[in-house]
C-alpha cells in the first residue's frame, strides 16, 4: 500500500513538522509499502535535501511564488492521489493542512480524522487516537482505508533529515495550477519580533513573587532563553516593575496558551490561573506544597526554585553542547 505524507514550506524553507509526517508514514509502513512525500513550494531543494527517509518525493514547484496557496496545493495533491491511489494520506495540522484535509475528504468521500496523536495499524484498518475538546478528551477511532489523517505537530518524532536520491524524485510543474488558481497570494509578512506577544508564545517561563528580587529575574531569563521561551511574570512581579506590563500573565495581563508553561515561584491566585490554565504542559515549582498552582500543573516540584534553575540550566547547557 501507498502512504502519502504531505509536507510544506514557504520561500526556500521547509516546515519542521514535514519530517514528522514522513516519520509517521514510515512508522506505519510495512514490507512492500511505499512512503511518498508530497511537497508543494517554490523549489524542491530543501525537500530533496531532507526527505531521504521517504521512498519517493513528488515535488510540485512554482518558482514565481514564495508560497503555494492551500487551494492550489489541494488541487495538485488531488492529481497525485488520482495517479498514485494511496491508502492513506497524512496531512499536518497547520494553516495549510486545515484547508487541504477536509477539501480532499469531501471530494474523494474518504473518511478523515483530525487532531491525531497516535495511529495503530491493523492490516487494512487503523485505530487512531485523536484530541477533542481542546485535548480534554481523547477519542479512539476506527477508520477503514483509504483515509486521510490530520496529524498534530509534535505527535511523532521528526525523521532524520537526509538527501533523497534524484531518481526517486518526481517533479511537477505547479505554475499552470498556480496561474489558474482561484486563490492568489498577494503578500507574505514575517513578523517583527521587537514586541513580545505572550498570547502567541509557544513556551513561557513565568516568575512569581517567589523569585524574591529583581536581580533574580535574570536567572529565570537565562533559563527561558535556553528553552526558547518568553519570560513572563505574575502580578506582584510586574507591579514591582521587575518586568514590563506586556509580560504579565493573568486576568489583568495576558491570557496565554503556550505548549510549555514553566511557573517558578508562582503561587497561582485564581486571577493568575485564569490566564494560563489552558497551557498544554504546565510545570510548577513552588516551595509551598499547598500552592493552588499545583491544582492545574501537570508536573509539580516543591524544591527551591533557585536550586532548580541552576540544575536545569546546567543540564540544558550540557545537552545543547552535545
Amino acid at each position: 500500500m501507498k502512504l502519502i505524507a504531505c509536507t510544506e514550506g514557504h520561500s526556500s524553507k521547509i516546515e519542521a513538522f514535514s519530517l514528522e509526517m514522513i516519520a509517521a508514514a514510515r512508522s506505519l509502513s510495512q514490507a512492500g509499502d511505499k512512503v511518498v512525500a508530497f511537497f508543494a513550494g517554490r523549489d524542491a531543494q530543501a525537500a530533496s535535501a531532507s526527505f531521504g527517509v521517504a521512498d519517493q518525493l513528488i515535488a510540485a514547484c512554482a518558482a514565481t511564488s514564495d508560497l503555494i496557496p492551500a487551494e492550489t496545493y489541494a488541487r495538485l495533491l488531488r492529481d497525485v492521489i488520482a495517479v498514485e491511489s494511496p491508502s492513506l494520506v497524512l496531512v499536518p495540522y497547520s494553516a495549510n493542512g486545515l484547508d487541504v484535509a477536509a477539501d480532499i475528504a469531501a471530494r474523494t468521500g474518504w473518511p478523515l480524522i483530525s487532531y491525531v496523536n497516535e495511529i495503530k495499524r491493523d492490516g487494512e484498518s487503523l485505530t487512531v487516537v485523536a484530541q477533542m475538546y481542546g485535548g480534554k478528551i481523547l477519542a479512539e477511532c476506527a477508520v477503514g482505508l483509504p483515509a486521510i489523517l490530520m496529524i498534530n505537530p509534535g505527535a511523532f518524532p521528526e525523521a532524520t533529515p537526509g538527501p533523497i536520491d534524484t531518481a526517486r524524485v518526481r517533479m511537477i510543474d505547479a505554475e499552470p495550477a498556480l496561474t489558474s488558481g482561484k486563490v492568489k497570494m498577494v503578500a507574505i509578512e514575517v513578523p517583527d519580533y521587537a514586541d513580545v506577544d505572550l498570547t502567541t508564545a509557544e513556551r513561557i517561563v513565568c516568575v512569581g513573587r517567589g523569585i524574591g528580587d529583581e536581580a533574580s529575574i535574570d536567572l529565570a531569563r537565562n533559563l527561558a532563553t535556553m528553552l526558547g521561551a518568553e519570560i513572563a511574570g505574575s502580578r506582584p512581579v510586574v507591579d514591582n516593575g521587575w518586568l514590563p506590563k506586556l509580560r504579565q500573565v493573568g486576568k489583568s495581563g495576558q491570557k496565554v496558551k503556550p505548549k510549555l508553561y514553566l511557573a517558578l515561584g508562582v503561587s497561582g491566585a485564581p486571577e493568575h490561573l485564569e490566564g494560563m490554565s489552558h497551557a498544554d504542559l504546565i510545570i510548577a515549582v513552588n516551595t509551598d506544597p499547598k500552592a493552588p498552582i499545583f491544582n492545574v500543573a501537570h508536573y509539580g516540584a516543591t524544591c527551591d526554585l533557585f536550586d532548580l534553575v541552576a540544575n536545569l540550566s546546567d543540564r540544558l547547557r550540557a545537552g545543547s553542547g552535545r
Partner: peptide
C-alpha cells in the same frame, strides 16, 4: 489579601 501580598 491581594493587596497585602502585593505590599509584601
Amino acid at each position: 489579601t491581594a493587596a497585602i501580598d502585593a505590599l509584601g
